[in-house]
Design a protein around this nucleic acid. Structure first.
Lengths: 133, 133
DNA sequence: TGTATGATTGTATCATTGTACTAATTGTAT
DNA sequence: ATACAATTAGTACAATGATACAATCATACA
């Protein structure tokens, strides 16, 4: 149960209200990373609204990188790793990733030139930013 | 233990991700004909997903003639991966590998230039190129 | 050997989850 | 009133999970 109250007379769209309440609950610790949010249908029933409205709110939060919605699984509050962690990961991770990538690709029989060509090509048509859960 | 990582936020269905990773591992020799894959339950537990999702991936690979799943016995890489399959896989595999590598690395905050520099550096220290099995 | 039995494997089916698309409703300016 | 845009609802769908099942294997024992 989600103790989330709406004001239907405020003129503020419901999906915005949901977004704001959930942000609040994360800020004040009522929701913690890893917590599962109610399903769109469950929360919709609780609030007596259509589940698509909840889905819209969830989508906004997802695009903001606050939650992770996964079809068939549910929606979860995202872990937000502290900056120093990601910074420490940066160096070791890129080395490991590159090592592994090159090993795999060379093992496939591609030449270094081909690999570079691929990198260049895909770098040009790149849409950035997705995070693993 | 199966080095197989999923991205629950990519929007790409999990069963598709599993199919792709296994194709990759076959292409680059990490999996060889005759090798037994993890049981649907074992892999599911490792990935923290439902075993039916693994089963779905295995079924697709089975229908593609890449693996053989046998009720009560397990699933195995087929002895003779169809040539046209492996050949076609080679291309899609490098594309998938590259795309995933770049996504990972760019997410860490590296610029395309830095990535290219890294690649160049490691390619130099990586002496001869190997042939595909 | 042969067979009984329990464990382990993949399979089938349906429920539950979020998604996509479209239609209806509501608010607001003209 | 009308038109337009934003919001909400209806419907169909795709992905994942839960549960019960069938086939095979491993083991013990006669």
């Amino acid at each position: 149960m989600m103790r989330l109250e709406l004001d239907f007379r405020s003129g503020i769209p419901i999906y915005i209200q949901i977004v704001d309440r959930i942000k609040e609950m994360i800020s004040n610790g009522h929701l913690k990373p890893g917590d599962q949010l109610p399903t769109v249908r469950a929360l919709a029933q609780e609030l007596r609204i259509n589940f698509n409205t909840v889905a819209r709110a969830y989508r906004i939060l997802d695009e903001s990188g606050i939650i992770s919605t996964q079809q068939g699984r549910g929606t979860y509050i995202l872990e937000i790793p502290p900056p120093e962690v990601t910074q420490a990961m940066r160096q070791t991770t890129i080395e490991a990733l590159t090592e592994r990538y090159l090993a795999d690709v060379l093992r496939l029989g591609f030449s270094p030139e081909e690999v570079l060509a691929f990198i260049h090509r895909q770098l040009k048509s790149k849409s950035p930013l997705q995070k693993p859960f």
